[in-house]
Design a protein around this nucleic acid. Structure first.
Lengths: 152, 152
DNA sequence: TCCCGTAAGGATATAACATAACAGCTGCTG
DNA sequence: CAGCAGCTGTTATGTTATATCCTTACGGGA
């Protein structure tokens, strides 16, 4: 029985990140690794303060916001994580390697986020922007609604 | 000489909102009217607290956040204003009447926001979502980059 | 007239999200 | 070993948004 969700494997995802880091000489420190685990094990995107809480519990001492925001910045910069602007939340990027400009499907009911790529859409967006004389360097496409599972 | 920007006429926009309100029996109170004016006269989208500041100056007394957030909610509910999620800012919706699901072009340099409609894009988004079994009821498409004027 | 319901706004407090600024540590490299 | 870069800790603060309760204004029906 297959779920409607992408069924990301947390372990596999983390291994991929590890291998990309190794390949690019990026430092995957213990702190970063822990945040990675927290993110990957969550079924839904997490807010920064949810990460702070979990991390504080893990470490047994309070972790201050800047620590987590810096870690998130590192992941965002390298495309391992994306930010969901309409929710102020962060989620593992399933398509490592590509610039992360997918379409986000955000379920109202279960809170999950799914990311899909669509070259046709990207081209159309680019063309639409170009027609307005606009040169985009970042795009956000977020759809809020009901996912397959929750609609059923 | 025509600007690259939509050159929205603040007065005209406000009149349109007035007429829609009249037509739908919506109450355009003095407070709402003042917020409308503040929004329409700004060249770039405003954050809620910028509105609070301006409104407080206009009224000669401090205005509390809930007052402005309620007013914004009213405008958002009726599609007079849209929220720019990636900036936490609010701007007049130039296409009254349509559900406001346009593409937002956000200039990094001058801070302005432009809204364009694209039926083709909407259809493609809808189709893409449907293929994933997703039923969207709200969409956000934001492109960040350089507008025509600033690129020149 | 009196009462009541509803919509709008005021006031206080607090929650939630994010960053500035500086200090310390570690490991590399000249 | 000196000096620098990268990472983390710490304190404080800035920014955005909501919960809660109270008051006012207005319209409709007993």
């Amino acid at each position: 029985m297959k779920s409607g969700h992408a069924e990301r494997d947390p372990v596999r995802w983390q291994e991929q990140v590890e291998s990309v880091c190794a390949g690019q000489g990026l430092h995957l420190t213990p702190l970063r690794r822990r945040v990675l685990t927290i993110l990957s094990e969550s079924s839904a995107p997490l807010g920064a303060y949810a990460i702070i809480d979990q991390l504080s519990r893990l470490e047994g001492k309070p972790i201050a916001p800047p620590t987590v925001y810096r870690t998130l910045d590192f992941f965002l910069d390298h495309g391992f994580v994306y930010k969901i602007e309409s929710r102020n939340a962060y989620a593992p990027c399933e398509h490592l390697g590509h610039a992360h400009h997918g379409v986000l499907l955000l379920c109202d009911k279960c809170g999950r986020s799914d990311e899909i790529e669509d070259m046709g859409l990207d081209r159309l967006l680019q063309a639409t922007a170009a027609r307005a004389g606009f040169a985009p360097h970042r795009q956000m496409v977020e759809l809020v609604g009901l996912c397959r599972d929750c609609a059923a």
